[in-house]
Design a protein around this nucleic acid. Structure first.
Lengths: 229, 229
DNA sequence: ATATAATGCTAACAATATATTAACATAATT
DNA sequence: AATTATGTTAATATATTGTTAGCATTATAT
C-alpha cells in the first residue's frame, strides 16, 4: 500500500536554499538528494537517475546552464525534467535554459508553495501533453485524446487509461511496429518494470473492446504490435 | 469574489516586466500565467486557452509577430484577444501586428494603469468575454455566469463559488476531459496549491447538489473529469 | 467589532476500478 | 514434433477516486 515516492535532486550551492527546499519537498513526501556544484550534480544525476532535478543556475565550477545542457545531451538523463532556479535579473538565462530543454523555471526568491506547485505540475505533464494532442483518425476509427474518447463507426468505445494510451500510441504511427517495451515506455516512462505478458493482457482486452476492429491491431511475431496502415 | 476570474497569459522575456504586469493584474483579480518565449507562449495558449494574451513583440526564438500569427491561424486560439507590447520605435510592427489580428497595443515603457485600462477594454469588446459570460446550456441544465445561477429542469440550484466555477469550466467544453489541475488553474490561476482530493471533495458536493444530474459529471479514471456531451 | 455561519481545505480511510502476475492453453515457426 | 511466442483467465496487487470529519479561513450578520 505504500507508493515509492519520486526522487528529486536539488542542486544549489547555498545551504539555506538547499535545506528550505529539502524540508518542503520531504514534507510533501518526496525523496530528496542534494548536490552543491555542477560536477556533483552530473555525477549524482547519472548514478541515481532522479525523477526530477531542481537546478540553480548560479553554481561554482560548471554553471547551471552547462549542467542542463549536458543532462539533455546524455540519453540516460535527457528525459528527466529540470526546473531551474534563477535570480530575478537573469532573464536571458531563463530563455536559454528553456531552449536547452529545461521544463520550467522559478525565480528567486520563491515561495515554497510555488515551487511545490511547479514540481507537481512537472510530474503531471505526461497526461496533460496527451490531452493537448491531435485527434487521430485511422479508417473508421477516431481517437480524440482531449476527450479520451474512441469512436468506431459512430459508436463510442469505453477504454481504460492504459488501453487508451496503448491504442493512441499505436495509432499515432500506423504501420510502425512497437515492441512491448516501447509501448510501456510511451505510457509510463522509462524503467517501468512489467512482464511481456502484462502488455499482452492489455492488448487482449483492448481487442475485445474494439469488436470487429480488433484485427487492426496486428501481432508482429517476435517483435511486438502495430496498427494496420 | 463574484465573477469567475479571467485568465491572462503574459508573454515577455524580461522578468521585471513579467512580474510588474503579473503583480498589477493579480491585484485586479485576474488569474495570471506567464511565458518567457514564443514556444512556451504557444504551448500554454493552446493548453490553457487563456481569455487574453499580452504579448511582447521582442522575443528570443520565435518572435512575437509570428506567435500572434500562429495564434490567429489556429481555430482553438484565434478568438483570444491579443494585446501587443512594443517598443516606441517599432511602428511598423504595430501596423503589421494589428493586421495579423492583434486587438490592441501598448508601447513600452507603459504605466500599469494604462495596461489595466486596455485589458478591461479588451474584455469589454471581446468575443471571448461574451463567450465567457455566455449562458451555457447542456441538456436541461442552464448555467448563467452573469447571475451565477444554475437551473436544472426549471429549478434553481444553489452552488458555492468554487462549485459554480468548476461546473462552468466543465460546461464550457462538454465532452472535453480536464485534469484536476487544469480545473484549479482555470479558477485560481497557476501555482495555486491544493491536493487532488480537494477537487474531488468539491466534485462530490457539486454532484450532490445536482441531484439526478450528477451523472453528467463523469469521472475519467486516471485523468480527471468531464461533463457529458 | 465581534459573533456566527459558510466555505474550502486536508487527512485519513473506504470503496472501487484497473493493472499485473502467474499459470496454463493455443498457435506459429523451425 | 519440438520449440517458442502469444493468448487467455483468474487471483492478487496496486492505484485512483469517493467520502467523511475536523479545522482554518473567509464572509456575513448582529
Amino acid at each position: 500500500m505504500f507508493m515509492p515516492k519520486e526522487n528529486i535532486l536539488i542542486v544549489d550551492d547555498e545551504d539555506d536554499v538547499l535545506e528550505l527546499v529539502r524540508y518542503n519537498l520531504e514534507k510533501e513526501g518526496y525523496a530528496v538528494q542534494t548536490a552543491v556544484c555542477g560536477e556533483e550534480a552530473l555525477t549524482k544525476a547519472r548514478a541515481k537517475l532522479p525523477d526530477l532535478i531542481i537546478l540553480d543556475l548560479m553554481l561554482p565550477g560548471i554553471d547551471g546552464l552547462s549542467v542542463c545542457k549536458k543532462l539533455k545531451e546524455d540519453t540516460k538523463t535527457q528525459n528527466i525534467p529540470v526546473i531551474m532556479l534563477t535570480a530575478k535579473s537573469e532573464d536571458s538565462d531563463i530563455v536559454s535554459g528553456l531552449e536547452l530543454g529545461a521544463d520550467d523555471y522559478v525565480t528567486k526568491p520563491f515561495s515554497p508553495k510555488v515551487l511545490i506547485a511547479r514540481v507537481r505540475r512537472a510530474f503531471q505533464r505526461s497526461v496533460v501533453r496527451d490531452l493537448n494532442n491531435a485527434i487521430v483518425k485511422v479508417r473508421e476509427m477516431t481517437i480524440d485524446p482531449s476527450r479520451r474518447e474512441v469512436i468506431i463507426k459512430n459508436k463510442p468505445i469505453e477504454l481504460t487509461f492504459t488501453e487508451f494510451n496503448i491504442l493512441y500510441t499505436l495509432a499515432k504511427r500506423p504501420g510502425q511496429v512497437f515492441t512491448r517495451y516501447q509501448i510501456v515506455d510511451a505510457i509510463h516512462g522509462e524503467d517501468y518494470l512489467v512482464t511481456d505478458r502484462a502488455i499482452d493482457v492489455q492488448i487482449v482486452s483492448l481487442r475485445k473492446k474494439l469488436g470487429s476492429y480488433e484485427k487492426n491491431i496486428e501481432t508482429v511475431r517476435g517483435v511486438g504490435y502495430r496498427l494496420k496502415d
